[in-house]
Design a protein around this nucleic acid. Sequence first.
DNA 1: TTGGCTGTATTATACGACTAGTACAGTTGC
DNA 2: GCAACTGTACTAGTCGTATAATACAGCCAA
Lengths: 125, 125
Amino acid sequence: MISFDTFKPGDGTPIYLQILLFIKRGAVAGTILDGDELPSRRVLSALLGINPNTVQKAFRMLEDEDLIESQTGAKSTMKLNDEKIVKLREDLLREDIRSITESLRQMGITREEAVRLIERFWDEE
Amino acid sequence: MISFDTFKPGDGTPIYLQILLFIKRGAVAGTILDGDELPSRRVLSALLGINPNTVQKAFRMLEDEDLIESQTGAKSTMKLNDEKIVKLREDLLREDIRSITESLRQMGITREEAVRLIERFWDEE
DNA sequence: TTGGCTGTATTATACGACTAGTACAGTTGC
DNA sequence: GCAACTGTACTAGTCGTATAATACAGCCAA
């Protein structure tokens, strides 16, 4: 059963997107595996203190991307393979890096400064 | 007059926040200086193809942070000094770095991999 | 078999972001 | 002075996110 212990809703990002990203990043990290059972919509929503419909929206999108399998009455399970994971990793990384480089460049930060900042703040907090 | 030529609304971030960040990052980069005139609400909204109220919301928040000065009838101007800029730089950098490190860590990326990714993708696009 | 769980669907409500339109007071340049 | 600009304020409406409550059909273990 996939654990959401490390999941903490934050920023202003829609909750359903945060759930989506949490699952995808777990799949990339290898902490979430093919066949793993997801918590039920009701259980997870109670756990996170949010509405079941919000969880359902996230799970529905995961199913639309063929990353989970659902059938009425039974728990949903992860549906992963190497190809999907490689693609997920590329997509997520590309967007993260694109976002940070654009942001830092707008502030006039150089590549060398950016690297130094990452090295310095990586292990904080 | 501050130019918004490089401003391109994107992601799902609220437009008024994107305008806010554009100004703040420009101040940090030194491309926007103390005393600089801002385009009028109406002109900027027409330029960006958005509603004047959205621009007003961003400008209002900048004034609440004492980063611009506005008076009825006259154009708004930037209100900066070294102390404010240092603080802006720290706040913006901290949030950017926090965001990217958290995201990459959730994907199981190490510090060394993160640095390599930044170095590799910095000059792309 | 049966009761409690599962996924799925529907309706209604609330709020923030954004748009549209209008109005009014004050500045600026000719 | 006056016309054209400026900032500010307000109402009304749409859309996406999130909540709340309810309902139904299918799985599964005791």
